[in-house]
Simulated assay, not measured.
Amino acid sequence: MSVRLRDEGTVELAGRCPADDAEPLLRLLLSEPGAQVDWRTCDHLHMALVQLLFIFRPPLVGPPRGDFLRRHVDPLLRRAS
Results as ranks from 00 to 15, higher is better:
residue 21 D to Y: 07
residue 15 G to N: 06
residue 29 L to P: 05
residue 75 P to E: 08
residue 4 R to M: 05
residue 33 P to V: 06
residue 62 G to A: 09
residue 42 C to R: 13
residue 54 F to H: 14
residue 40 R to D: 06
residue 14 A to N: 11
residue 66 G to W: 09
residue 12 E to H: 05
residue 14 A to Q: 09
residue 58 P to Y: 04
residue 35 A to S: 06
residue 23 E to W: 10
residue 30 L to I: 09
residue 43 D to F: 05
residue 29 L to A: 03
residue 13 L to Y: 07
residue 74 D to V: 01
residue 43 D to W: 00
residue 42 C to F: 05
residue 33 P to W: 06
residue 59 P to L: 00
residue 23 E to H: 11
residue 41 T to A: 14
residue 5 L to D: 02
residue 47 M to E: 15
residue 56 F to S: 04
residue 37 V to D: 02
residue 23 E to Y: 10
residue 40 R to F: 06
residue 47 M to F: 11
residue 60 L to S: 05
residue 53 L to W: 08
residue 69 L to F: 09
residue 64 P to R: 12
residue 30 L to W: 02
residue 22 A to P: 00
residue 40 R to E: 07
residue 79 R to M: 14
residue 77 L to H: 12
residue 22 A to F: 00
residue 4 R to Q: 12
residue 37 V to C: 04
residue 18 P to A: 01
residue 70 R to Y: 13
residue 41 T to D: 13
residue 68 F to L: 12
residue 52 L to T: 08
residue 22 A to W: 09
residue 53 L to Q: 03
residue 77 L to K: 12
residue 50 V to Y: 09
residue 59 P to H: 08
residue 77 L to R: 15
residue 48 A to C: 01
residue 42 C to H: 10
residue 58 P to G: 03
residue 22 A to D: 05
residue 76 L to V: 11
residue 20 D to L: 11
residue 80 A to S: 15
residue 40 R to G: 12
residue 30 L to E: 15
residue 15 G to T: 05
residue 39 W to V: 00
residue 20 D to P: 00
residue 48 A to K: 13
residue 45 L to E: 08
residue 1 M to P: 14
residue 27 R to P: 01
residue 7 D to T: 12
residue 80 A to T: 10
residue 8 E to A: 05
residue 18 P to Q: 07
residue 71 R to H: 14
residue 45 L to A: 03
residue 46 H to F: 07
residue 32 E to H: 15
residue 18 P to N: 06
residue 5 L to Y: 04
residue 42 C to T: 15
residue 69 L to W: 13
residue 70 R to N: 12
residue 11 V to G: 01
residue 2 S to P: 15
residue 39 W to T: 00
residue 13 L to A: 08
residue 13 L to K: 11
residue 45 L to D: 02
residue 54 F to M: 14
residue 38 D to E: 08
residue 38 D to V: 01
residue 25 L to R: 09
residue 71 R to E: 15
residue 75 P to Y: 12
residue 9 G to W: 02
residue 4 R to K: 08
residue 28 L to Q: 04
residue 69 L to H: 14
residue 51 Q to I: 00
residue 27 R to Q: 13
residue 15 G to K: 10
residue 1 M to V: 08
residue 64 P to T: 06
residue 53 L to I: 01
residue 13 L to R: 07
residue 26 L to E: 07
residue 16 R to A: 08
residue 69 L to I: 04
residue 77 L to N: 12
residue 40 R to N: 09
residue 19 A to M: 13
residue 25 L to E: 06
residue 53 L to D: 02
residue 29 L to S: 02
residue 48 A to Y: 03
residue 3 V to P: 04
residue 65 R to N: 10
residue 21 D to K: 09
residue 52 L to V: 04
residue 37 V to I: 04
residue 78 R to D: 06
residue 59 P to C: 02
residue 39 W to P: 06
residue 64 P to N: 08
residue 68 F to I: 06
residue 56 F to Q: 07
residue 70 R to V: 00
residue 9 G to I: 01
residue 36 Q to K: 14
residue 20 D to K: 11
residue 59 P to S: 04
residue 41 T to V: 01
residue 31 S to E: 11
residue 75 P to W: 14
